[in-house]
């Protein structure tokens, strides 16, 4: 059923990585795209971002890292990457294929004739 506080918020605070407040979305992508277990996925992302593994779930450190890399933040300011724009950068940063990004590129390249 639906109890966002009892379920989602509680799990998020108790054990979640924090999504795009931190690097949770990036580690999640490694599990999804490469089937990595949590330890391997965290180490992979930490290596790509040049931060320590515990820093991946730190919103202060990761907010700065995300700002520097322009890969999307919760407080989205003007003229920074949002939505699929940020996913273009994430695909490149993590060296993974993101399905909708690949499809977007394919459509644009056809329109541009490249």
């Amino acid at each position: 059923m639906g109890d966002p506080l009892g379920m989602h918020i509680t799990h998020s605070i108790a054990s979640g990585m924090g999504g795009m407040r931190t690097a949770g979305d990036l580690v999640g992508r490694m599990q999804m795209s490469r089937g990595m277990k949590i330890k391997e996925a965290k180490e992979y992302v930490a290596n790509k971002l040049k931060v320590s593994v515990p820093d991946l779930a730190d919103p202060i450190v990761m907010n700065e890292v995300r700002e520097d890399l322009d890969i999307g933040r919760v407080n989205a300011l003007p003229r920074v990457s949002k939505g699929i724009d940020a996913k273009f950068r994430i695909a490149e940063l993590l060296d993974i294929e993101i399905n909708c990004v690949s499809m977007f590129k394919d459509r644009i390249s056809k329109k541009l004739g490249v």
């Binding site: 639906g2 966002p4 989602h8 605070i13 054990s15 979640g16 990585m17 580690v27 515990p54």
Partner: peptide
């Protein structure tokens, strides 16, 4: 409330994600 030790956080995935708010009459 309790929580995991720093650095031991894991990835959360969801089922029936977009229906949960509607079921709560939001």
């Amino acid at each position: 409330s309790v929580g995991v030790e720093r650095g031991k956080e894991v990835i959360l995935s969801y089922d029936s994600g977009t229906t949960k708010f509607n079921r709560a009459n939001i």
